[in-house]
């Protein structure tokens, strides 16, 4: 596979020096196309104290197509779809904005930054985004509650 060298290099780079607050591993040692990211809720965010699992799926034509990020831990967030997929699709994760020179670590960092500062203008969950904009207290209450309920255990 032509892209194997790139993926292996990225994986070794990211395991050696992962983005702050995250750990990266393969979900299944035999498949380099599916990664598992363990992300601690950033201390400056409402998700503090939570431990989130993110599945990163690399398409067969990676890096020419963007990786797919999905939260396997339930999370209350305007940019994460509130279904069994927990998918995220914005910024560099969109195929028209993704550049083959972009790295997965950058995508992970972007996800982490979104936990700190959700992007309500490019939301997948419109009602959560509205609440985030207009009733911040209620949003934070639910997000904290979900964090405790679903992301409590490491």
């Amino acid at each position: 596979m032509a892209n194997r060298k790139r993926i292996v290099k990225e994986l070794s780079d990211v395991t050696r020096s992962p983005p702050p607050g995250t750990r990266v591993q393969l979900l299944d040692e035999s498949d380099v196309h599916i990664w598992e990211v363990l992300m601690d809720g950033p201390p400056e965010s409402v998700y503090v104290g939570g431990h989130f699992k993110i599945k990163v799926t690399l398409p067969t034509d990676y890096p020419f197509k963007p990786p797919l990020l999905s939260f396997t831990t339930k999370i209350y967030h305007p940019n994460v779809s509130n279904d069994d997929k927990g998918s995220m699709c914005l910024g560099m994760l969109r195929s028209d904005e993704w550049k083959p020179a972009n790295r997965i670590s950058a995508a992970i960092e972007m996800a982490r930054n979104l936990l700190i500062a959700p992007n309500a203008d490019d939301a997948v969950e419109v009602s959560i985004a509205d609440q985030f904009k207009n009733d911040r207290a209620e949003f934070e209450k639910i997000a904290k509650d979900w964090t405790k309920r679903y992301a409590g255990k490491a």
Partner: peptide, 29 residues
């Protein structure tokens, strides 16, 4: 970038995404 990657990039933009007039350099940002 190596020519192979450049080619694959352009081909995927043209064939899969129907881009032509506004394909950007594959470099980050």
């Amino acid at each position: 970038f190596c020519v192979n990657c450049y080619r694959t990039y352009l081909a995927s933009k043209i064939r899969d995404e129907g881009e032509a007039a506004r394909i950007k350099c594959p470099g980050e940002g």
